[in-house]
Design a protein around this nucleic acid. Sequence first.
DNA 1: GCCCAGAGAATTGTGCACAATGTTGCGCGC
DNA 2: GCGCGCAACATTGTGCACAATTCTCTGGGC
Lengths: 240, 240
Amino acid sequence: MNQKTRLVGVMNQRNRPKIDDAEGAYQHLFDAIVDQRLLPGTKLTELALVEAFGIGRRMVAAALQRLSWEKLVVFIPNRGAYVAAPDADEARQVFAARIAIEAGTTEAFARAADAASIARLRDNVRQEHQLRHEGHMREAIHLSGGFHTLMAELSGNAVLADQVRLLVARTSLIVNLFENQLGLAGWHDHHEDLIAHCEKHEVEEAVFLMRDHIAEIRDALALDRRRPVSFDMVRVFATR
Amino acid sequence: MNQKTRLVGVMNQRNRPKIDDAEGAYQHLFDAIVDQRLLPGTKLTELALVEAFGIGRRMVAAALQRLSWEKLVVFIPNRGAYVAAPDADEARQVFAARIAIEAGTTEAFARAADAASIARLRDNVRQEHQLRHEGHMREAIHLSGGFHTLMAELSGNAVLADQVRLLVARTSLIVNLFENQLGLAGWHDHHEDLIAHCEKHEVEEAVFLMRDHIAEIRDALALDRRRPVSFDMVRVFATR
DNA sequence: GCCCAGAGAATTGTGCACAATGTTGCGCGC
DNA sequence: GCGCGCAACATTGTGCACAATTCTCTGGGC
């Protein structure tokens, strides 16, 4: 089974939807990377994706390039594009950036939160809780990240919301790459407390809690112990 | 004189350097937009840039797409790419994002600043002061933005530094698009005070001053009065 | 004078063949 | 067995011709 066919197979894990523009290709690659259907180090060849998606090389290149700016894939000159595999240093910077940026979104949201926004966040937490209870950990984790993205969007600043979306995606990569010592036990409670503070417009407390929450996720990871990943990845790092 | 030739001329305002990859094209377009050599609303046709830079359509498309991701150019489907012209709402979001993110970089920098970093920032302020004194306002403004980028880089977080770089560039667009009531009188003093606080590791004071500084730049703009540009500009350049 | 239709122009997206470049692997000499 | 060189391979970048789409402008009908 050559690589091209295999890649198509990965794309086909769900039924293959119609993709006719760069946005669609981007979305599918983004989801596949975040959900770990495409593992770090996987090679993403233009021609393979052209066949997989049924769109031209130009669109594929556009999608890949966007993912590379978002640091989800790495381009190696004249070699190709690979799914990114962040190292410990990058991981630390991502968490530091999240603390700074989400402090901003939390501040804005806690200041201006209305009942409808609070309800949407509560709904997110409720769904996550249920999914976790039923054992659907992947979907639960997905929603857990979505909580941060959602709050950022509700804060009303598109610039910050976009950054949070990307940083959450990178966090997803990182969490899956490094060993996680505590599991994700603490997430749920923090999110609920956070909503409570925002509902009462207790800005200081909400911001403090958010910073602490993200720091806790970071500290639950063993950043000096990376998962044994695919062999190609070694080369990715060797040439980087 | 057709449009293609004229665009080459804009590119040629300085001597035309060798451009042989997407990075070069991106850098030149980025500088041209930030320095207002390419005005908001200017149409950027692929083929025109291919001739201007002497590289292939693929590279040009890559550079344009990256600029679009950075919100410095806007793609209109099946129409082409145009230099962005942020509206008041976007401007407000950019300033809000800068306050949040640069609070983070300032905090990190004020905590960890060493003598060498302080010296580099002082040097920046000194140069800017001199340029302004000699009447080179454009270069002075350039350096003034560079102060923020430099501090972000020195803070040690590449993620945040990259964001600051982009937000500073967008601010440059905004400052030139909206009427500026106070001039840029306050910048210099704030920067110097900021360095002083960072040197003494007075984190709280430094962060507060940075937030206040950015808010002051924002408040000096008449965000409800935009320069007469954009739409007309497209026409003027297209038909000339 | 005004409105609508249709031709024309401009520009991006695609497909194919080929060039450029870096990688891989094999065989050869030692 | 080991290092070296060379050739085949894989992959991206380019050029050209053409398709598709959308705006623009002109002209006829009223």
